[in-house]
């Protein structure tokens, strides 16, 4: 049916990588190729090519602006032309799927991840930096969080209960210390993020290797004792009083912050 073909052609002009060239070369041929009947093609206005180009620009600019807003440092390092090209490829190859506009940057990063990792023309740290920048919105808007506490004290044979927004992100770069102009340094980094239950702000804690190793296991719902033992085994450090005291201090801090709620 001609109206469905018109919609398909219109969408293609926004989505396909080679659409701008094809539309510019012969817009009537472009519509015809998408199945729009000749009599409908003949009725299209003179300015059809220019107007399709405007729509494409509007759609892509909106997506690009959203990504640049959530990833300002990453966008600055990519530069405008490169970001524009990345958005064009994203729209053509994957595109946003969710009806929620704010999630678009996460969808973009899911697409970019494997591509940026292999792209030698991009800085090695770029994906880590982008993921760190996005984590603020990801955690800040997480539908989870604010769950009722179990009310049970920590117990060695039990897993623990975290606030639903708590997550641990590991990076090969000190992304949390990058600035608009300074690149992050190469340094294994573990960051614990959560959303404050009172002020709803996202908080970021830099973890020691020990705290990170324990937290990884606790987030995987391992019982407390097993998490402590396996973390020490992994790091080759003794499970001694010094370690236990450090972990007790870490748990007390998390509990005070409302990130750790007790035994699960």
């Amino acid at each position: 049916m001609s109206e469905e073909a018109l919609i398909r052609a219109f969408a293609a002009s926004v989505i396909e990588l080679d659409a701008p060239a094809a539309v510019k070369a012969d817009v009537r041929e472009f519509f015809a190729r998408h199945g729009v009947p000749p009599e409908v093609v003949a009725g299209l206005p003179e300015a059809a090519a220019e107007r399709l180009a405007i729509y494409r620009t509007m759609v892509h600019s909106r997506l690009r602006a959203a990504v640049a807003e959530f990833l300002p440092k990453t966008a600055a390092r990519l530069g405008r032309p490169r970001l524009r090209q990345q958005i064009e490829r994203f729209v053509a190859e994957a595109a946003p799927k969710a009806p929620y506009f704010w999630r678009l940057t996460g969808e973009f990063l899911n697409w970019a991840g494997p591509r940026w990792t292999e792209d030698a023309t991009l800085p090695d740290y770029l994906l880590d930096l982008a993921r760190h920048e996005w984590s603020d919105a990801e955690v800040g808007n997480d539908p989870a969080g604010g769950e009722a506490a179990s009310g049970k004290p920590l117990a060695l044979d039990q897993p623990v209960q975290f606030d639903g927004t708590v997550r641990l992100h590991r990076y090969a770069w000190a992304v949390h210390r990058a600035t608009e102009t300074e690149a992050p340094e190469a340094e294994a980094t573990a960051l614990l993020l959560y959303r404050d239950r009172k002020d709803h702000q996202v908080k970021v804690l830099e973890l020691t290797p020990r705290a990170a190793a324990v937290t990884t296991r606790l987030l995987a719902r391992e019982p407390l004792q097993a998490a402590l033992m396996e973390a020490c085994a992994e790091l080759g450090t003794p499970l001694d009083d010094e370690f236990l005291a450090a972990m007790a201090g870490y748990f007390a801090d998390l509990a005070e912050r409302g990130a750790l709620l007790g035994a699960a």
């Binding site: 919609i7 398909r8 969408a11 926004v14 729509y55 909106r62 729209v91 946003p96 009806p99 678009l104």
Partner: peptide, 12 residues
């Protein structure tokens, strides 16, 4: 269109 959410108001 075709599972791609374009986040704009496109004409019919």
């Amino acid at each position: 269109h075709d599972g791609k959410m374009l986040h704009d108001l496109l004409p019919l």
